[in-house]
Design a protein around this nucleic acid. Sequence first.
DNA 1: TCATGACATCGACGATAGTCGATATTGACA
DNA 2: TGTCAATATCGACTATCGTCGATGTCATGA
Lengths: 114, 114
Amino acid sequence: MTEIEITDVTASCGTSLVGEPLSEGAAEELAHTMKALADPTRLRLLSMVAASAGGEACVCDLTEPVGLSQPTVSHHLKVLTEAGFLSRTKRGTWAYYALVPGALDRVSRALGAA
Amino acid sequence: MTEIEITDVTASCGTSLVGEPLSEGAAEELAHTMKALADPTRLRLLSMVAASAGGEACVCDLTEPVGLSQPTVSHHLKVLTEAGFLSRTKRGTWAYYALVPGALDRVSRALGAA
DNA sequence: TCATGACATCGACGATAGTCGATATTGACA
DNA sequence: TGTCAATATCGACTATCGTCGATGTCATGA
């Protein structure tokens, strides 16, 4: 296991791009968070989870629509989870992913939105 | 010159992550925009430009603070400019970069912020 | 207990991105 | 015209990322 560092999106709470110059550390954290969103597949997965009935979806529901292999989808969901955008709940054999409330809003605010 | 494609941030206006599932094209565009922000150096450059007197800064002002070579800084500024976050104005030998008003806000809204 | 199905992890590969030094370009000025 | 300074572009190298097939893990159910 290689150092799971959950640079949670909550870490970038309070920092704002347009206020004063970002410190090296704050920039690193925010960039790490943004990197999780800087992939078309992950953006689609995120929106598909958000649009799912009950606000959650399992891997098997997402694999076919995005047209990628199961390991790849599982990898992307892990990235989104470690970045603090998704939560994972295991019920039986299935793993259900759901949006973490407020996670995207925190990024919005970090970008300097009013 | 290799295909300058200015996937301007204005392109992702109107699309929202949390509404309905993102189309493949919309996800690609938004990811391209986010990718420009998913680098610590570029985030620092963006915030430094925003915090500069007069709202603009030249390359020579930014090179030393970020601790990277001039070509590298120039490269990052180009990425930010092509993504629609910065504007470039050349006066004499100097190139002044400034924030494009509303560019960051559009990304905020695309993320689903109210 | 064994087989099956859902998901995670591993190892590898090609593609892309960040960085640099060297060089080209352009404007200012003597 | 020639030199100098600020910036952009080029080519190369390294690191990281997205993707896959193969395999491991674990819960279900016959």
